[in-house]
Design a protein around this nucleic acid. Structure first.
Length: 762
DNA sequence: AAAAAAG
């Protein structure tokens, strides 16, 4: 659907699949052949880890001279299919050789379509069409996957049978072991394979990330209660250097101080909020009128009609970023916390109008344990095994509310423990809801978790699955880009918690293969993102399939009124939480903006990523991401890319290459902006500045984890300065703008090849 | 512009 952006054969993996029209459209073939060839260069290089043959393969034309089938149908030199016979056999042996390779296993996940019979028939032709050497690597991918298919199924059944009885044994304390255990036995369990693959690299780090969050903890503890931008600004008491002066926050963290602020702040904030809100309303009203709509006139409780809100709301936000985005952030805080603000709510649709937001400070949850919050001992022990010994603020706040069955909105910045905040109580709820019941074969899922990207879905499952397993519940991942067979198989056997992305989930619902009618809990991670244009509608449709009155949990680091549409339609008297003191000064991220000449950009980028640590580069488009990765590679800096033009196997693989350290540079689109956890990224480079402050916050949140220092560099041209300034304001980030030229020491310093200014002063 | 579904 919208996924296909390319004129033809737009699927991400199209270049690795036989052309359906191979014998029909010569133009098509030539066209794609060329383009894919370029991409393939990267891939095959990836596969072999060397650049040497990339050059050869880059000129597939060489192969055309000798290979009979290499010409497409319309070509004079085209020869029909029979000639594929010989190559086919030869290829098969290649395939046999290749499929034993372990990397074949890794790619099993995406093998589905390639296993289709007609695909096989096409293969020889396909092979011949391109130069032989060029194609082989892909073959291996494919070949490697095929044989695992049946085996997978067997494993799946076997594993499942094994699994069930054993679950009971897996009591407290053995979480780790049980997990690892399950890992192996469980290979065929849907998603398990994928996860195991991931686990070899990428997604272990994600759980590790959780552990790191633990390390983070002290910092958050240090933070005082709800700090408002306004307060911070006014607080000249806090000199700038205080930013690094963590301990100081200790002092002010404790009760009295916070309470003081609570009082004083509140009124101030409300006032701010009202102003902001009114501005917001004004804008929106205007817009509605402009748009010929009169939604504003609807009463605030107007439920059903609200569904079409997201569109105007979103476009409004986009249309007037500078007016709306920042205010909306404030609003979120403000509305939620300020009852007195009511008099300023003339009309209707303030999202959090009837919500009482609670700002949770770490000090409030000191000494509280997960057990205190109402989680069962198995879950508590599992969490401990994952490194989550005691709850983070956002967890302490939301877990009891979730267990009470309330709808919850929660905002906590990246790495603040949101996944466990909804995951652990969700598991507990599901467990309680079926207490005493037998886990039936083919039971319907009881809970669903939606994420905006596949990687994030995988990652969430990586956190939740061990928790679920510890109490004998099953999770499965439902996302696109991989054959659906295994996912459907899992659903047939019965899973308790579904984690996935909207597209495939809706697809399976429509196919009648996923029944959410018994789904009592629905979670939206990155909820604000899921409410953006193009996302929100599938999400709404999916949520409507869940059980009546199902509990809804909305989480995001940048939760704001963009979720209004969903809140209005789906949430009932939600509890709203945020974590206190999440401002730049409590962050370990250093932000800088380099103002450069456009002609220097490429070289500066190369210079920036030519460094020891892991670097994540964000590009605006897929093509540019690819280009940059190749550019870095050509410069001798191993780099891979991550974006939606890659098939899922490559997405996974390339991400894994970064996490495993096989490369130090990953160039990604915003697919990696949210939720992707890789340890040790100490530099985020924004080759293209983001358009939205939220994007900035999420991208930069990929670094500075674990209390380590992280650095974010954004490259802009002079023309962009103003926009960038505004964006940073909205993000509430202070960053120096520095002019930089190609061989400036500045770049050396940022890349870490020179001591930084702070190093010198230290 | 990106993301999210294709036997």
């Amino acid at each position: 659907m919208p996924k296909n952006k390319k004129p033809r054969g737009g699927r991400p993996s199209a270049n690795f699949e036989p052309r359906y029209g191979a014998n029909k459209t010569s133009f098509h073939d030539r066209h794609n052949g060329g383009r894919d060839g370029a991409r393939d260069t990267r891939d095959s290089r990836d596969a072999r880890g060397g650049r040497a043959d990339a050059g050869e393969r880059r000129t597939p034309a060489a192969g055309y001279d000798r290979r009979p089938g290499s010409r497409s149908v319309g070509h004079r030199g085209y020869r029909p299919a029979e000639e594929g016979a010989a190559p086919k056999q030869r290829w098969s042996s290649q395939e046999r050789a290749g499929r034993d390779e372990s990397r074949g296993i890794r790619n099993r996940a995406e093998s589905g379509r390639r296993e289709a019979p007609h695909s096989r028939d096409d293969r020889p032709r396909y092979n011949d069409r391109s130069s032989a050497g060029f194609d082989r690597p892909r073959r291996d991918d494919r070949g490697g996957q095929r044989p695992t298919g049946p085996g997978t199924y067997r494993d799946e059944r076997g594993g499942q049978r094994d699994e069930r009885p054993r679950r009971d044994d897996r009591g407290a304390g053995t979480q780790r072991q049980g997990f690892r255990d399950g890992d192996h036995r469980d290979g065929g369990r849907p998603g398990r394979d994928d996860r195991r693959d991931q686990r070899s690299g990428g997604f272990r780090d994600d759980r590790g990330g959780q552990r790191f969050n633990r390390d983070d903890r002290p910092q958050r503890d240090d933070r005082g209660a709800s700090e408002r931008p306004r307060f911070d600004r006014a607080a000249s008491e806090r000199p700038r250097f205080d930013r690094d002066d963590r301990p100081r926050r200790d002092d002010r963290g404790a009760g009295p101080r916070r309470d003081d602020r609570g009082g004083a702040e509140r009124s101030e904030r409300s006032y701010d909020a009202d102003r902001a809100r009114r501005a917001f309303d004004r804008d929106r009203t205007q817009r509605s009128i402009e748009g010929g709509r009169d939604e504003r006139s609807r009463p605030s409780t107007g439920g059903a009609y609200r569904t079409d809100r997201p569109r105007p709301l979103t476009s409004d936000t986009r249309g007037r970023p500078s007016r709306n985005e920042r205010p909306s952030r404030n609003d979120w805080n403000a509305t939620s916390s300020a009852a007195p603000a009511k008099k300023f709510e003339p009309t209707d649709d303030v999202v959090h109008e009837r919500l009482e937001a609670k700002s949770v400070a770490a000090v409030e949850v000191d000494g509280v344990t997960f057990g205190d919050l109402g989680l069962g001992s198995n879950i508590v022990e599992t969490l401990a095994g994952m490194g989550a010994a005691t709850p983070f603020p956002i967890q302490a706040a939301s877990i009891p509310a979730v267990l009470q069955g309330r709808d919850v909105l929660a905002r906590g910045r990246t790495g603040s423990g949101k996944t466990i905040a909804f995951g652990a109580p969700l598991v507990e709820r599901v467990l309680q809801s079926q207490a005493g019941k037998r886990r039936e074969f083919g039971r319907k899922p009881r809970a669903i978790i939606l994420a905006p990207t596949r990687e994030l879905a995988l990652q969430i499952d990586g956190t939740i699955q061990p928790i679920a397993r510890s109490v004998g519940l099953f999770t499965t991942q439902i996302y696109g880009g991989v054959p659906q067979g295994r996912q459907v198989g899992a659903l047939k056997k019965g899973v308790d918690i579904v984690i996935g992305t909207p597209g495939r989930i809706e697809d399976l619902i429509n196919q009648g293969k996923l029944d959410l009618s018994d789904c009592r809990i629905a979670v939206l991670d990155e909820a604000d993102h899921m409410c953006e244009l193009g996302f929100v509608e599938p999400v709404q449709r999916i949520l409507r399939h869940t059980a009546d009155g199902s509990q809804k949990l909305l989480f995001s680091a940048t939760l704001d009124r963009e979720v209004a549409a969903l809140v209005d339609e789906f949430l009932v008297d939600p509890a709203v939480y945020e974590v206190a003191g999440e401002d730049q000064e409590s962050s370990t991220i250093e932000h800088r903006v380099l103002v450069i000449e456009h002609r220097d950009k490429a070289d500066i980028l190369t210079s920036l990523v030519d460094r020891a640590g892991k670097t994540l580069v964000f590009a605006r488009t897929r093509a540019y991401a690819d280009m940059l990765a190749e550019q870095f590679d050509d410069a001798g800096i191993p780099a891979v890319s991550l974006h939606g033009d890659l098939n899922q196997a490559k997405r996974t693989r390339n991400l894994e290459r970064l996490t495993s350290g096989r490369v130090n540079v990953l160039v990604a689109t915003d697919v990696a902006a949210r939720g992707i956890h890789v340890d040790d990224i100490d530099l985020v480079v924004q080759a293209d500045a983001p358009d939205e402050y939220k994007t900035y916050l999420h991208r930069s949140g990929r670094t500075g984890r674990a209390g380590r220092s992280g650095r974010v560099v954004t490259l802009i041209t002079r023309q962009r300065q103003r926009r960038m300034t505004e964006l940073l304001q909205r993000a509430e980030i202070d960053a120096p703008f520095e002019n930089a030229r190609l061989n400036d020491d500045l770049i050396e310093e940022i890349a870490g090849r020179m001591p930084t200014a702070s190093d010198l002063t230290a």
